[in-house]
Write a protein that binds this DNA or RNA. Structure first.
Lengths: 337, 337
DNA sequence: TGCATTCTGTAGAGCGCTCTAATCAATGGA
DNA sequence: TCCATTGATTAGAGCGCTCTACAGAATGCA
């Protein structure tokens, strides 16, 4: 039950190995007749090219690796959708690795990608040190999506988180809110610019003195705790949280405390995950064009891969920043005055 | 900037290629002295074994492929967690492929796994025809998780969906409900046994005449529509939905119609996804031990892989069925009588 | 001391494919 | 008719590693 090889097909078809190889790769250099002959033999024998051998010999895999930081977060699934679409169109295979929210695992996955000689790598929401990411990028084209890295060898695709935060504040201010508190995302990807964007916007709208940041991280639990901490003092009229999970946690705790959202408190989340869209939650939030970000990330990677192929000097890394958009749902309301 | 190879390291260390190879594979057949010598040379030169070459030569990859039907569904992330844990412990690498909810993509991913010569494959919630899955299983050890397949070459790990449905009905009956309607999952994995389990349980509890199945599929939208359809007639006191998403959709539509859950209608979902656990939703649901299922799936795969290695006749496929458990939260309540 | 045994290390033939350069037949132009 | 050109095919040398002998040194035992 040995697997069928090129050689077997060649023997069956009565031609050379090289010719079979050419046929398998759709080379235009073979005659119609022999192409048909070989193809027939191949299908008859159930031949399937051995990619390990092919990759080894050709030194390319036509495969990219995508490192997702957390399989549990729908954000990554949507980024991946965009990458898939673009990679498919360009004839690249895609394999996924999960970082399991840990730098150690992320590193393992990258090592494995490298050892397998993949043509390119996309890291999504990667937590690894920028230095490490650059190291990898020296060996193989790499682009980072969702996490900004200032480097001229790794391209990045992000959305403008400062701007997103501003949109959130602007929306709330437009509804008459002044007392707007930010629940922070700690070390999560994008949390820092969202925080600073919030602070800047508050100041710009002349309500900087109301600004207040409650430390937390990207979990529902943290959102609930943050609200808990606020419950003792005077309640703000609005909350802007660094992601949707925080918002949901906050929402829950508020209602538990007998406060109504949005009558008593308005909430704006961030990410527009499928969670926010659930009618039962219906969270006003800030959207990033995730699928598009994935697509653009692949495009950037492709540029880098092809220029490396053609031996050009490494092209200057590209840093694409997308625009976020406010999605208004049912957790925000004009303030009763 | 050529990558450093075994040969380079051997030259640097002044030993043979074979010795370096042995050191890289931690063979006990090398002396302390030469091991140290080689390792030093390797790290100095930044050597990293080329897995394509290694796999080609050794005819094993120490890597398994995991095909996830849908990256957007948290169910898969949790199954994957279990597989990761077990595979790590056994020293296997794991790569992921997404089926993107389509049989075509699933097939592509499997083809790619095969062509890459992976040692084994786990398919999770795979929608491909059983016949096709068996075909693949003939070439490489394969186990299916979350989807039952009656075959004696592909092992399966599932949870007892009929039993899960019975638990749901039993819980509701225990709370005094009789008029319990089932919102169906259509062709989704597990939907059929849940439906038949529901029907059987209703009959067993002597309330078969109340049984009613509303056709739908595994989406929030379908849950809402199903409730919509019910709104015209007399409302049941309880709903058992084929998954959590359906439950959330139903929940939303009910509240929109002015009915309170659980005061007016109780709801039991299925899957115990993270969604159900959100405090804001707090759905009573049926849990499957997903992580454990993933772990067991890998174990079954490992059995199959090792016996294939040692040339034993293919072992009889194993069909593990796990027990579901009812998770009581806040969407069910004793009926007011 | 002699011989079997164990321990280390190495040569060299692949693994299944690609790729360059060469071969050979057919074609066309002068 | 001859030679350059084109088109189709092939030989053969790798790609970077593993693995099966096998060789030589060191050890044990009688």
């Amino acid at each position: 039950m040995r697997r069928v090889t090129l050689e077997d097909v060649a023997a069956e078809a009565g031609v050379s190995r090289a010719l079979v190889s050419l046929v398998m790769r759709d080379s235009p250099r073979v005659s119609r007749a022999s192409r048909a002959l070989v193809q027939e033999a191949a299908t008859k024998m159930g031949y399937r090219p051995n990619l390990m051998a092919r990759n080894l010999a050709s030194r390319r895999t036509m495969t990219i690796g995508v490192l997702l930081n957390d399989l549990h977060n729908p954000w990554f699934a949507e980024i991946a959708d965009g990458i898939f679409a673009a990679a498919d169109a360009a004839g690249y295979r895609t394999i996924l690795g999960s970082g399991r929210r840990s730098a150690v695992h992320e590193d393992q996955v990258l090592e494995s990608f490298l050892a397998n000689g993949l043509d390119g790598i996309v890291v999504a929401g990667c937590r690894l040190a920028p230095k490490r990411i650059e190291e990898v990028a020296k060996e193989v084209p790499l682009v980072s999506v969702g996490r900004a890295i200032s480097s001229d060898i790794v391209s990045t695709v992000t959305s403008d988180d400062r701007m997103g935060a501003r949109l959130a504040v602007q929306h709330l201010v437009g509804l008459g809110h002044r007392h707007i508190v930010h629940i922070d995302g700690g070390r999560g990807a994008g949390a820092a610019p969202r925080r600073s964007g919030y602070l800047a916007a508050m100041k710009d709208f002349g309500i900087g003195h109301f600004a207040r940041v409650i430390p937390a991280d990207f979990t529902e639990q943290a959102g609930a705790s943050a609200v808990n901490a606020m419950l003792t003092g005077p309640m703000p009229t609005a909350l802007f949280t660094s992601n949707d999970l925080l918002a949901v946690g906050a929402l829950d705790r508020l209602e538990q405390a007998g406060l109504d959202v949005p009558s008593d408190v308005s909430i704006v989340g961030y990410d527009n995950t499928s969670l926010a869209a659930l009618h039962h939650i219906s969270l006003t939030t800030v959207d990033q064009p995730r699928e598009q970000m994935g697509r653009v990330a692949f495009t950037a990677l492709l540029t880098s891969m092809t220029s490396r192929d053609s031996g050009d000097p490494a092209p200057k890394a590209d840093h694409v920043v997308m625009s976020p958009a406010l999605i208004e749902r049912r957790t925000t309301r004009r303030i009763d005055s």
